[in-house]
C-alpha cells in the first residue's frame, strides 16, 4: 500500500503550444514543492490533481482516489488554494465561513476565526475590498479551516509582505506538526521553499527536470563559476546543466565535493533554488536527474 497522498503517473495534457508530461508523488508527512518559471505547468498540475482539468493520458491519485473521479469524502480531506482565484466578490468573511460550515461538517469555526484574528483579517468586509495580501492570507486560512489531511497551495505567499509571509509559513509548520498531514506547495520565493519544504520537483516546459531533497540541495549542490578554458577542460559527468551568464559559464552540479577535491581553487557558489531554476531553464541540460 502506497504511502503517497498524491501520485501522478505519466500524466499528459496537451494544449496548442504546450504539453504537460510528468510523473511525481507526494509522500505522507512531507512538504513537497513544485517549482518552475511562469508557464512551466505548475498550475496545470495542480488543476489535474484537484480534478479541475482532465489529463489526456496517465493516472493520478489524490488520497488514493482517481483524480478524474474524486469522491466528496476525499475532497473533504483536502484544502486547496489556487493562484488568481477568489471567493464571491460580495461575500464577507462571515459569509464564506457560513458557506464552508455548510459544505464541511467538521469545519472548525473557532479555529478559523482565531486565525483570521491573528492575521488581522476582518470578517465583515466584502471580498472585493480585500487587498491582494489579505486575499492570499484569507484563502489559506479558509483552506485549513476544516483541518484537511492534505494542503495543495499554489503560490500562497504571493503578494504578502515579509512579516505576513513569515506568519503564514509558521502556520504551515504548525499544521505539519500533526502526523499524517502533507503539503504540496508552489512558490516563486526560494527562501520560503528552502526553509519550509522537504523536497521539490523542478518543472520546466511541462516536464519534471529534477526531483531533489532540500537537504541534498543544501549539502551537495553547487554552482561552478568557470572560464571558457576551465569549462572546456573539466570533467562534466557531474554537471546537470550549464549556462553562460555575465561572460562566464555557470555550471550546476550535484556533486560539490567531487569538484572541491578535483578542481581545487575553483570558484564555487552555493547551490540554491534560484540558481538552479536560472541555469536549468536558460542553459543546456547535460544530465537529467531522477527522470522516470
Amino acid at each position: 500500500m502506497t504511502n503517497d497522498v498524491i501520485t501522478l503517473d505519466r500524466i499528459t495534457k496537451r494544449y496548442a503550444d504546450f504539453t504537460l508530461d510528468l510523473t511525481m508523488h507526494v509522500p505522507k508527512d512531507t512538504i513537497t514543492a513544485l517549482i518552475g518559471v511562469n508557464g512551466s505547468g505548475k498550475t496545470t498540475t495542480f488543476r489535474i490533481i484537484l480534478g479541475l482539468a482532465k489529463p489526456d493520458t496517465g493516472n493520478g491519485t489524490l488520497l488514493g482516489a482517481d483524480v478524474t473521479r474524486l469522491p466528496n469524502a476525499v475532497k473533504r480531506d483536502v484544502g486547496a488554494v489556487l493562484a488568481d482565484t477568489s471567493f464571491d466578490a460580495v461575500f464577507t468573511g462571515d459569509d464564506v465561513i457560513r458557506q464552508m460550515k455548510a459544505l464541511y461538517p467538521n469545519f472548525n469555526v473557532p479555529l478559523c476565526r482565531t486565525l483570521l484574528e491573528r492575521f488581522a483579517l476582518p470578517t465583515d468586509k466584502k471580498m472585493e475590498e480585500f487587498s491582494t495580501g489579505m486575499t492570499a492570507k484569507f484563502k489559506t486560512v479558509i483552506a485549513m479551516g476544516h483541518e484537511p489531511d492534505v494542503l495543495i497551495l499554489d503560490e500562497p505567499t504571493a503578494g504578502l509582505d515579509i512579516v505576513a509571509r513569515g506568519e503564514l509559513l509558521d502556520l504551515l509548520r504548525a499544521y505539519m506538526e500533526t502526523p499524517g498531514h502533507s503539503i504540496l506547495i508552489s512558490s516563486h520565493n526560494s527562501k520560503d521553499i528552502e526553509s519550509l519544504c522537504d523536497d521539490f520537483y523542478f518543472i520546466d516546459r511541462g516536464r519534471i527536470r529534477l526531483h531533489e531533497t532540500i537537504d541534498r540541495l543544501r549539502d551537495e549542490y553547487a554552482v561552478l563559476i568557470l572560464t571558457d578554458e576551465q569549462a572546456a577542460a573539466m570533467d562534466r559527468s557531474h554537471v546537470l546543466a550549464s549556462a553562460r551568464r555575465h561572460g562566464v559559464i555557470h555550471a550546476l552540479t550535484d556533486e560539490r565535493r567531487y569538484y572541491e577535491e578535483n578542481m581545487p581553487g575553483i570558484q564555487m557558489a552555493r547551490g540554491d533554488i534560484d540558481e538552479l531554476i536560472t541555469i536549468m531553464t536558460a542553459g543546456e541540460p547535460l544530465r537529467e536527474r531522477n527522470q522516470p
Partner: peptide, 10 residues
C-alpha cells in the same frame, strides 16, 4: 476567479 475555488469544494 471563482470557479477554480468553487469546484475544489466537496
Amino acid at each position: 476567479p471563482i470557479r477554480r475555488t468553487l469546484f475544489t469544494l466537496p
